[in-house]
Design a protein around this nucleic acid. Structure first.
Lengths: 241, 241
DNA sequence: AAATGCCAAGTTGTAGGGCAACTGGGCAAC
DNA sequence: GTTGCCCAGTTGCCCTACAACTTGGCATTT
């Protein structure tokens, strides 16, 4: 019933964010030297350990580079070692649409690869997810969640069949977050407990293309679904906001 | 002339990798509690601070979740908060091809969006990069590097014109690494100081589609270029390895 | 017996000190 | 001018201590 209460950010994370936004907003430029750990500790009023953990996170993302004996320096954007999408990015609907655009291309690739490489076991798993989506759902509070789960599983299964671990990880990484957020959007116009026949046809088109191993059709079908999803999100946005 | 010598990994990073691979390889399953920080410190023979920094990195990536007073627990893969591609992934040619497949889809999206939204200023920037690629290069040691730079800049400029910050970041994040690695592959058959007319035509097709604002053509042209690049890499692999 | 309140051990979070390893700049000797 | 050295400053690592918190068990109460 109740969600776990939101815990305040720890000190290292707070300081890491502060420093990261200093870099992002240009208050610290590429090549600049960060203040020493002792000075930062004094400035933020925390111990040096906390500052060290904060800088360790920045270094881990490749935002800064620490040279022992010299200091920590802001690195150029090209050498970041991670592509991070923080949870807040999913809040704004505009951001969400941009992420959906990015996802569309990756899902298209995944479907295309899956059409090429799918095993019969892959096919069985995907078919099972599709059957789950076709089935009408009971009208209980979890109906929407289960519907979204079914769609996630379907596309995760397709990604898994692609055999490309980077595509798999990327889709696994984004799918649940995006879908959870989409769910909260849909929930406002609370009537979407069932997958509309239009959407279902989009999914089935992807599946049948994978069955017949036609990679171009699969790519197009996946792309069309996610572009349509993006448009549907925009329309709901027009109505709701 | 000499490259800076390779520095050994710091202790926290080493321990973070050890723990991460324990999770990756299933020695620590989802929901498991990690050994306490003191025990880990004793086991690795380091101080608790080092262990803390290591766990801080894992937590930052969402691999584990630390609850004060309870312990650190392995989280499920879906809630990872970052998509990370470590530098080693670019070493193996097979991995590189998989990354190229992923990139193809994203670049296709970028080109498509760029065709829709490009301003005349965007167009000018992209055109300039294209001209840079057309120009024959002087035969000096840096020729290959400059050639690759020109191709990076071209596709970075297209990404920038897409207006989608996630697409931009993702492409900026991957392009340079992939291209550097491609460069070292090409360098072995040292003769690629100039962009072949075939490849140049692929680039020009992308550009002209963006000029004429035909998003479908742009998407296809970009996809075809990166798929062709992947095939070329595979062929070189056959010869060289 | 069941529910409640409380305590104690264990764990993570933060503080603050200290030393080793290293860097960069200035200075003296050559 | 070049070399070698020293020194202040910085990061990397270690140590101890305490605060904040969780968990499980025990005692108390109902």
């Amino acid at each position: 019933m109740y969600l776990p209460i939101e815990r305040p950010l720890r000190l290292p994370a707070t300081i890491a964010q502060a420093l990261a936004s200093d870099i992002q907003d240009g208050r610290l430029k590429v090549g600049d030297k960060l203040p020493g750990e002792q000075k930062l500790a004094a400035a933020f009023g925390v111990s040096r350990n906390v500052v060290r953990e904060a800088i360790s996170q920045l270094r881990y993302d490749g935002l800064v580079e620490a040279r022992q004996g010299a200091g920590a320096f802001v690195t150029s954007p090209e050498q970041r070692s991670a592509f991070r999408i923080s949870p807040e990015c999913f809040e704004k609907r505009r951001e969400l649409r941009q992420i959906l655009d990015l996802l569309a291309g990756v899902h298209a690739t995944a479907a295309s690869l899956a059409a090429l490489k799918r095993s019969t076991a892959d096919l069985a798993r995907i078919r099972k997810c599709l059957a789950q989506m076709r089935k009408p759902m009971a009208e209980d509070p979890d109906a929407l969640a289960r519907r979204l789960d079914a769609e996630i599983n379907f596309y995760n299964a397709i990604a898994a069949a692609s055999g490309n671990s980077y595509v798999i990880d990327f889709i696994l990484f984004l799918n649940r977050r995006v879908t959870e957020r989409l769910g909260s959007v849909f929930q406002k116009n609370a009537r979407a407990t069932e997958i509309s026949s239009v959407v279902l046809e989009e999914h089935e088109a992807v599946f049948s293309a994978i069955v017949s191993q036609s990679k171009n059709d699969a790519r197009e079908a996946a792309r069309l679904h996610f572009e349509a999803a993006s448009r549907r999100l925009a329309r709901r946005g027009d109505r709701a906001e």
